[in-house]
Amino acid sequence: MVDILIYTAMAISSIGVLVALVRFVKGPEKVDRIVAVDVISTIGITLILILATLMRREIYIDVAIVYAILGFIGVIVVSRFIKRGM
């Protein structure tokens, strides 16, 4: 029962990745693409969490923590570069 719910969450989240990817492909401005990447990385964190729950391994959460704490640095680097060079 719980597994069915978790699989449902996984399916919905992976549809979310695809929909956000459409914005990444279309995005007229660079900042649109950056926001799409930000959303994709948040969904990716959730996907890692879902995989950890499915496989019942606590250590997989460490990977998700790495993305949670470091993912925004890339976004800041890109936006700083777009604004006026590094």
């Binding site: 990385s41 990716g44 996907l47 890692i48 995989l51 496989m55 391994r57 250590i59 997989y60 460490d62 990977v63 790495v66 993305y67 470091l70 993912g71 640095i73 890339g74 680097v77 890109v78």
Partner: peptide, 26 residues
């Protein structure tokens, strides 16, 4: 990184996460 985790290789996934999230793009 997520695919590595799916293949049950958390060490590689963590390396990819820590290198690819900030360091490479910087």
């Amino acid at each position: 990184s997520i695919l590595f985790l799916l293949l049950a290789a958390p060490d590689v996934a963590m390396t990819e996460a820590s290198i690819g999230s900030a360091l490479t793009s910087a």
